[in-house]
Design a protein around this nucleic acid. Structure first.
Lengths: 201, 201, 201, 201
DNA sequence: ATGTAATCGAGACGGTACGTCCAGTCTTGAC
DNA sequence: GTCAAGACTGGACGTACCGTCTCGATTACAT
């Protein structure tokens, strides 16, 4: 897979060593110094690279960060399918618990916040993010839901996009705004509520 | 109500004119120039105020922005209770549709993104936000849900915090990440799904 | 005497410590690293000053250098009158020999070359230089020549500006272009030739 | 005649088209954008040439500029002898007036200032300049003075180098520093003063 | 005529410095 | 003591060039 942000200059001559050093430095620095102190200058220095090499290939700090996540996804061999034990609720709880653990790991929390911030303020980046990172993940999630539809656990006419948002939205929102503890228990409750609904029956 | 961010100097002598000018300028500038170009210097210049007056009373740009929202909430007379027609679903859809409209209004969208960004990267500010803005709103939301419990529309043992997150989380998450169209229709689907659950019954 | 390059901002609040540190650093660096490596950034670093403080008060690197020479002239109490022993030729030779020694001193050679280069390419700076440094020196030179006129050593109708150029011009030109050795002997010959003329009599 | 700056690589394969384009571009750009904005990159672009082609054949920007003047001198068929009407003063005035006109022509003024600046800061280039451009000119000037010696207009034991410096030095110095108007009248006065001497007789 | 070696235009690279903007601190004089 | 004003050190911005390097593609020489 190619870097996500479009390449105008003579990409054939591009130094892959520098590219990787930059993305690595961007991700690491985001984790170490935080979003506020994350600078192009710092990334260039850490990567042992001229600033121009960054400006030549990326339009913004956010684009670098985005590619850093993209590289991470590639290097980790892409995302595997969600577990499918036949019990949707158990599988979802397992996945969300893992997500909670990741979000609570400062090694990942800080860079993700940095990327999310950039996405928030850059619609073009948001589009790229949606297309390159969110959609593939969303597809895997929908696959699992479709499997549940197949065995009759979920209704056949369910709007899968709404379903995904209903399950993952509350978690991500609570993480971003720190509006409450981000625990496995919370994940469990959200899954249960999403599946069974709030309404009395 | 006093500004939200703790005040050490002699607050008695504080100029309310300057305070309001600063908060007004902060909110307006956030909307006009966006988060990236929002600067203390710019706020001071727009408010016709010395920079020191800002640094004297607020610890960070985010704190100013936070107080700007607080002022807005005060000036608009605080938040009224959620509508209670006896039909929970209809009321929630109405409220979420209004929220959608607000989030789609660039006049509010930009400052809210700016504030959210600051909250994301500043746990102390997140605490304040939670306490001063989110909790009061959340209380009103819970009041409406409790009313539904009283008439048996919702189960008595429902975890109201989870319920609120389930209803509002997907909306806010989609708004922040622009991961899909933010429409009244989406609001409607989310409410329906949240109330009835995804699971086939 | 005030700095030579016009001051627009609120000069009353100007830090004299920083001003002097900058001018000192500029002069010293010009001598140490040479014109080619003389940078605003380097001056600021050496002076322990923000770059903006230089940009706030001087329009160009040349203007800083110019003020550095101006400060030097002030601090050394201004230029004293040329010696007047009654023997014009001897006095001129003495003065030009001293000039030769100064021009051969690397401590002064490099900064002067730097300043001359800036003057060469900046007419406004050339005007300032002429007015603030060259003219006062030229006045002293003319005074000495006038004294010689008074005792009949020089004709009363002599064009003193041409005379000064004739005496000092060859020396400065040879220095700048290194078109020959810059020695006391050369100074002597120039003075003799200028006074007696080339023509056979 | 070969370019003035020594050539190590295989000069036989050198592209004369590129060489001329570079020198032409250097001279023209010096005149158009001035010394401060004259860059190797700009010369290469203007000449339609790779940067390496410049770095391969010249050690510095000044060397390129120097060769540009050398090419100019070659192309204009070298310098002709100075006029010799039998009246030294008249001939010198004519020559210096022509020089004044050239120095006042912005087409030549700017590149010459650029070259002089490089010479000022590069002793090796100064040596080359002296050897390749100044000496040949100086030889012509001395020839004219020798002719005057032959007819007894100038003393036989005159130091011709001092004489040349005395006549041309004041003019060049005034030009470089803009320390006064550069007019034909000034040239005339200098010639008269240089020939007759300042001293009363 | 054909290999081979150097030059060519092009342009990416690690860097330095530019001139600007802003952060956050400090000082001044008016109130 | 607070205020508007604004100078101060410091540091990042995004740009322009530096001088080096590598890439194919000519191009001219020696076989």
């Amino acid at each position: 897979m190619k870097p996500g942000t479009g390449e105008s200059p003579n990409a054939a001559r591009r130094s892959d060593t520098s590219r990787r050093a930059i993305l690595r430095a961007a991700f690491d620095l985001a984790g170490e110094v935080g979003y506020g102190r994350l600078s192009i200058e710092g990334i260039a220095a850490r990567a042992g690279v001229g600033k121009q090499t960054i400006y030549r290939w990326w339009p913004s700090k956010g684009a670098v960060l985005f590619d850093a996540f993209l590289l991470l996804a590639e290097d980790s061999g892409g995302s595997p399918a969600l577990p499918d034990s036949g019990d949707l609720e158990a599988d979802l709880v397992a996945v969300l618990r893992a997500t909670v653990d990741e979000l609570n790991d400062p090694r990942y929390d800080a860079p993700m916040r940095a990327l999310n911030t950039e996405i928030t303020h850059d619609p073009e980046l948001a589009r790229l993010y949606s297309e390159r990172l969110d959609e593939p993940m969303r597809a895997l999630k929908k696959d699992r839901l479709r499997s549940a539809q197949r065995i009759g656990e979920l209704p056949a006419d369910l709007d899968l996009d709404v379903a995904v948002d209903l399950i993952w939205g509350p978690l991500m929102n609570r993480w971003m705004l720190r509006s409450g503890g981000l625990t496995g228990d919370f994940a469990e409750r959200i899954v249960a509520a999403a599946l069974d609904g709030l309404r009395r029956r």
